[in-house]
């Protein structure tokens, strides 16, 4: 930790503060705190890289919680449900666009306890879900605006980023024509296509303010390399106004030249690079460390009640100044054990 702090002092912050065109910088290295402060503001929309339980920048969720951002909206295919639930617990989100959020599949205990409490008890905010369910009226206090959940399918959410990246207003697709998803989600338009005269669905473009994307390797200029599945990260990094990379490993650009085919996010997309090992914990990172299932179960058990959830937040989010303190508290030997387990199956070549 001391060494990391020392390395950061080599950046001349005063000089760099004058340089506001972030995408053109030659050195984009920032701390996580600085990146969230700089790019994410109250009322902004944002998205996370990765896919269910893998390569999702969970540490950013905890940092957003620490900084107490308000009125955020989040769009995600099949989200980092644990992180989303944390922001729901604090009432920071106004709107969630998603295809999938684990609820009961965790087997007897709820996967998104805060969301369920919102739906049943209106705490901390009432919930309107998919135009189908809403918190009962007697539990709703008039001064608290509801959290809106909008339903899509995975492909449709991905196509929103694709359209955003293409810089066109929509993408057509043939998923769920005639189902209840376009019936309740009025942003999806069903048309008769002008060429073949058949039904077709149009998915509106989405350009979030910030995309937080975890990568295995990046250089100071912001070339991000991804091993394993790519999720929708290619399109998220094109669609978003600001792109923050969180990298397991910060390497000189010469190392990027060794595997140019893996550079999913080239430097011109990137606004900031945060060097933060284990930033996906408790989710996993392909080739680096596996999912921390034990941590998932224990935190879900603690967060089943609102009191328990607030206590958990005090301990693991507000009780840690930054991600490295979180890792200290968790225990580096456990994190290394998760890395060892992942290396039995997959490994990033040195």
């Amino acid at each position: 930790m001391k060494m990391a702090a020392k390395a950061l002092r080599t950046i001349n912050y005063e000089e760099r503060a004058k340089d506001t065109d972030y995408k053109k910088r030659l050195n984009k290295v920032m701390t996580e705190k600085e990146a969230v402060e700089t790019f994410l503001h109250d009322g902004d929309s944002f998205c996370m890289g990765g896919f269910v339980m893998w390569r999702q920048p969970e540490s950013v969720m905890r940092e957003i919680a620490r900084q107490g951002k308000k009125n955020l909206s989040l769009i995600d295919e099949s989200g980092t449900f644990e992180g989303i639930d944390l922001l729901v617990e604090l009432g920071m989100l106004d709107r969630i666009d998603t295809a999938y959020a684990i609820t009961r599949q965790v087997g007897g205990i709820s996967g998104t306890p805060a969301l369920e409490r919102g739906l049943k008890e209106g705490l901390p905010r009432p919930v309107e879900a998919g135009g189908v369910l809403a918190t009962p009226k007697d539990k709703v206090k008039s001064d608290v605006p509801p959290l809106k959940i909008v339903d899509w399918t995975n492909f449709q959410v991905a196509l929103r980023f694709v359209a955003g990246g293409f810089n066109v207003p929509f993408m057509p697709c043939r998923s769920s024509i005639g189902s209840d998803i376009p019936k309740y989600n009025k942003e999806i338009k069903e048309i008769t296509d002008p060429y073949e005269n058949k039904p077709l669905i149009l998915i509106p473009a989405y350009k979030p303010d910030v995309a937080f994307i975890s990568v295995q390797r990046a250089d100071r200029r912001g070339n991000g390399q991804i091993w394993g599945f790519k999720g929708t990260d290619y399109w998220k990094s094109r669609a978003a106004k600001y792109v923050v990379l969180l990298t397991e490993e910060l390497v000189p650009t010469e190392r990027i030249y060794e595997n140019p085919g893996l550079t999913t996010i080239p430097a011109y997309c990137t606004d900031a690079v945060v060097h933060l090992p284990y930033n996906c914990h408790p989710t996993g990172c392909f080739g680096c460390y596996t999912v921390d299932g034990m941590n998932f179960i224990s935190l879900l058990l603690q967060r089943q009640s609102r009191d328990g959830a607030l206590k958990w937040l005090d301990e693991w989010v507000f009780g840690c100044k930054n991600h490295l303190e979180y890792c200290d508290k968790l225990g580096w030997e456990k994190l290394d054990r998760l890395a060892k387990s992942e290396h039995k199956l997959n490994r990033i070549p040195a």
Binding site: A99, T153, N154, F155, S176
Partner: peptide, 23 residues
């Protein structure tokens, strides 16, 4: 796989299921 209205139950939701069942 989305909602049970009588019981006020939100389930996991489509995920890729809606796309798979379509295509």
């Amino acid at each position: 796989v989305s909602y049970v209205t009588g019981k006020q139950l939100k389930m996991n939701g489509s995920g890729g299921g809606g796309d798979i069942a379509s295509s």
